[in-house]
Simulated assay, not measured.
Amino acid sequence: MTAEAATAPPQVSRQLIRYTLIGGSGVALDLVVFLLLHNLAGMDEQLANGISTTLGIANNFVLNAKFTFERRDRLFVRFLRFYAVGLTGIAFTDLLFLAFTDGLGIDANLVKAGSLPLVLALQFVLNRKWSFA
């Protein structure tokens, strides 16, 4: 077994832990902004989701580039890729809003909160393999 193969699983584990912790800060920012825009300002849930998720994506890119994947090269290209991956989260969450909020009448706040772990897992894999490869 090569040294690289022996160290790969611990590196992935460390990256996942850091990504999750950083993701937590982005999720907190995303959720607070969503709740303020949707509940206090009365903004449509899909527009509020787009704005709040964009802020969370920007927060997470900066922190992940520095601390998780430790990549500081080609930042503009990496950000575009990271944002594209983030858009998959917006699209996925919007589909859940359509199905569960609009279709079944489930509260948008619950749908938003329930979507977060699924989006986090999907985006970690995509960002690790594409944005920061």
Rank of each mutant, 00 (worst) to 15 (best):
T2F: 09
A3V: 07
E4G: 11
A6T: 12
A6M: 15
P10F: 09
V12G: 09
S13N: 13
Q15D: 02
I17D: 01
R18M: 05
Y19R: 04
T20L: 10
T20M: 09
G24H: 01
G24K: 03
S25R: 11
G26A: 09
V27G: 02
V32R: 09
F34H: 01
L36P: 04
L37Y: 09
L40G: 14
M43A: 13
D44E: 15
E45K: 08
Q46G: 10
L47N: 13
L47C: 08
A48W: 02
G50C: 14
G50H: 06
I51A: 08
T54Q: 09
G56D: 02
N59L: 08
V62E: 04
A65Y: 09
F67W: 15
F67P: 02
E70P: 00
E70V: 14
R78H: 05
F79G: 01
F79D: 06
L80I: 11
L80Y: 05
L80G: 12
A84L: 10
G86N: 02
G86L: 06
L87K: 08
T88I: 12
G89I: 00
G89S: 11
F92W: 13
F92S: 05
L95D: 05
L95V: 13
F97K: 05
L98C: 12
A99V: 13
T101W: 07
T101R: 04
D102P: 05
G103Q: 07
L104R: 13
G105Y: 08
V111G: 09
A113M: 12
A113N: 00
L116D: 01
L116Y: 01
L116S: 10
V119T: 06
A121H: 09
Q123M: 07
L126H: 04
R128S: 07
K129R: 15
W130A: 00
W130R: 03
S131N: 08
F132Q: 05
